[in-house]
């Protein structure tokens, strides 16, 4: 009972944190507005079809966007929580109570998962209703979607935790944010990746975002659409291999870096960080 208690408390913590996010208007806006804007844009791209296919650019972008959201909520959410909450003392407080650190990290993961599922539903439900070519084609596509989401969380959340552990300053969030935005451009989210030069395609394929978009398109678009992907295939094996590799890397790095963060947390460390934050403002 004693060993599992922090996991249970952490799960409860994640649910409470998620509830707070959902009842705080600013946070809710942060989750909903970007998706809504993107959905509106995608909606107007319904009529623009991708050359050589009968599927619209809108129908293609919608599943891709879900893949992108997995990276955002899985990775950026955790990076942000870790940097901000180290500065305000949440982590330090966790360190002062028994089992607090474990519960804290479990809580962050649970909260991100809940937000991710919410954002998924937010895009998926209207998407399936509005876009004629976006549909579930039997249990196979459900299963693939589920597998992609799970693999996606595995590939992005531990990396997010590792990055969050590396940066102690919320300002350095931009160092993670900007490259991630850049990745959106080269991961074939809003336009097929095949339109890009081959060397850019190669870079895009290193990171999980491209593969998550691909997995979502494979789940939700007609099979014939595979023709416009790289190699004319959904490349499931390659997808699981790349996402699996990121998961392994993340799981190797994150516990090590998080332990280091936990070890170094102290009253004077937090006070010093807050001092620096004041200087930034002033």
């Amino acid at each position: 009972m004693m060993r599992w208690a922090p996991l249970k408390i952490g799960a409860r913590r994640g649910v409470i944190e998620a509830r707070h996010a959902f009842t705080t208007p600013e946070e809710m806006a942060g989750i909903v507005i970007p998706s809504v804007i993107a959905m509106v844009v995608i909606f107007f791209l319904r009529g623009v079809s991708i050359p050589g296919t009968e599927v619209s650019l809108g129908s293609m972008s919608l599943p891709s966007m879900i893949g992108m959201n997995i990276t955002f909520f899985g990775m950026l959410g955790i990076v942000q929580a870790l940097t901000v909450e180290r500065e305000d003392g949440t982590l330090l407080r966790a360190k002062t109570v028994p089992g607090g650190m474990t519960a804290y990290f479990v809580g962050i993961i649970v909260e991100s998962l809940i937000q991710l599922l919410f954002s998924l539903a937010l895009v998926l439900i209207p998407g399936v209703i509005v876009f004629e070519n976006v549909a579930f084609d039997g249990p196979g596509s459900w299963l693939l979607l589920l597998a992609t989401v799970i693999m996606g969380v595995g590939a992005t959340a531990p990396i997010g935790a590792a990055l969050g552990a590396l940066f102690s300053n919320p300002k350095s969030l931009a160092l993670v944010m900007l490259p991630t935005m850049g990745l959106v451009a080269i991961s074939g989210i809003f336009y097929p990746i095949t339109a890009l030069p081959t060397w850019v395609q190669a870079i895009g394929q290193v990171f999980p975002m491209y593969w998550l978009g691909l997995g979502m398109r494979a789940s939700l678009l007609p099979d014939a659409m595979a023709a416009i992907e790289i190699g004319g295939s959904w490349r499931h094996l390659e997808m699981f291999a790349v996402l699996g590799a990121w998961t392994v890397l993340g799981l190797l790095l994150a516990p090590m870096l998080l332990r280091r963060v936990a070890r170094r947390e102290s009253g004077s460390a937090v006070a010093e960080r807050q001092q620096r934050a004041m200087q930034r403002v002033g």
Partner: peptide, 10 residues
């Protein structure tokens, strides 16, 4: 400790 300003939403 004196430097806490966490859990503001709780």
């Amino acid at each position: 400790l004196q430097s806490w300003r966490d859990h503001g939403r709780w």
